[in-house]
Write a protein that binds this DNA or RNA. Structure first.
Lengths: 222, 222
DNA sequence: TTCAAGCGGATATAGATGATCCGCTTCCTC
DNA sequence: GAGGAAGCGGATCATCTATATCCGCTTGAA
């Protein structure tokens, strides 16, 4: 049995380097990045990368593992929140923030990757999302006709805004745009409330027409 | 001057064939489809395709033209609607329906294509979208803090749901999923209303956890 | 000290994509 | 209805990119 422990010290270190370089690169450029790219980014040879991970999927698997852990922590915190509605809001805000910072994570969550990795871990998250929704609904805060799966699709939708904006924005540019999704999250939250109430104050300003058009300019290379 | 009129009859027919084959193929598979693919789909040789359009962009340009016309018609109708709020709703429903049926259109609108085509035509649409928003706001139906650019981003977000769902669903499968975006459109609309009111009746049922997971299964080839 | 384990990265393979070329066919004109 | 310009098809070339391997050299640990 080829245990993790069986790795020589330097090899183990390189494996870690590869995983964190992978996270970083996938976060920035999405899952399209190559295993060769990751190797360079980690400062090791490609050979080393392929010795440790048979292919990109295997690396993604290792990273996905970590990410699901993080999401699970966010969800457990949300479920434990004293106010169920606040729990739901916190969950969406944190989860979306994580995905806005990490394109790779967003792509994995939206099913833009291989089935295997996805299925196994997803079963850990889905029940927790349902719980968040059920609690909020039970408390009379979330409208009756909305379920946990709705939260998933709404996240996918809101995350796409981040993707669109990031791919078009210059690095220096207005970093408010990075948080634009929060504006729409709050509109959606107003739509999710059970009881009619006055519109929330939106946390991010609308973009001007000009800013919008600039952001929709296509990818000048990621 | 190489006029359209200067084309021989068969050549002109082939050009039309290519454009409609392109629309069809881009609609189904997105803008990633090849000019060679389009040629085959049109039943003409690749040579013919490249003789008529120097490259894929040129073909897309021609198609984009038509699509903007259609969107403009939708917008003008919305602006002319007796009830400003109904106009806004109609616009979003029709525009989203069109984009759900046509991946290529959605990608172009979201800026997933080359600048040139985009910029020129966009200027025809943006003011109309603003008008739709302004009218609804002026009538006190749309919340005060929401602008035309918000409608654009919300469309991008909602359209992404269609993309996610389509890429995962089998052709025979539950065609309700194709309209799933409408469910979220209505949640968003509740969030966009100026006056607090009871939640709308959602036009599409939520997916079960099982259905959701099946749809998030990645692309078994488009 | 020894050598299995690990390393780097040039290099082979494969597949997709973009585009051209040229012998044959079709349309149009006179 | 004949001649020639315009058009046609699709095999083929040229890139590109991603994936993966191989092998001579280095390093860690028994």
């Amino acid at each position: 049995m080829m245990d993790t422990q069986a790795l020589r010290k330097d090899a183990a270190r390189n494996r870690d380097l590869l995983i964190s370089a992978g996270r970083d690169l996938f976060a920035r450029r999405g899952l399209a990045a190559t295993l060769n790219d990751v190797a360079h980014h980690a400062g090791v040879g490609v050979g080393t990368a392929y010795r440790r991970f048979a292919n990109k999927e295997e690396l993604i698997e290792a990273i996905w593992q970590q990410q699901v852990d993080e999401l699970e922590a966010i969800l457990r915190e949300a479920v434990a929140a004293p106010d169920p509605w606040e729990g739901l809001v916190q969950y969406l805000e944190k989860s979306l923030a994580a995905q806005a910072k990490d394109r790779g994570m967003a792509q994995m969550l939206a099913g833009r990757t291989w089935p295997d990795h996805y299925d196994q871990q997803r079963d850990r998250l889905a029940p927790l999302v349902d719980q968040v929704a059920d609690r909020a609904r039970g408390a009379g805060a979330l409208r009756e006709d909305v379920t946990g799966t709705d939260l998933i699709f709404l996240q996918i939708a809101l995350t796409d805004i981040s993707g669109t904006v990031q791919s078009g924005s210059a690095p220096e540019g207005r970093d408010d745009a990075d948080r634009l999704y929060r504006r729409y999250l709050w509109i959606v939250l107003d739509g999710l409330r059970a009881s009619a109430s006055a519109p929330s104050k939106l946390p991010v300003a609308a973009l001007t027409t000009h800013e919008t058009h600039a952001l929709l300019q296509p990818r000048p290379q990621g």
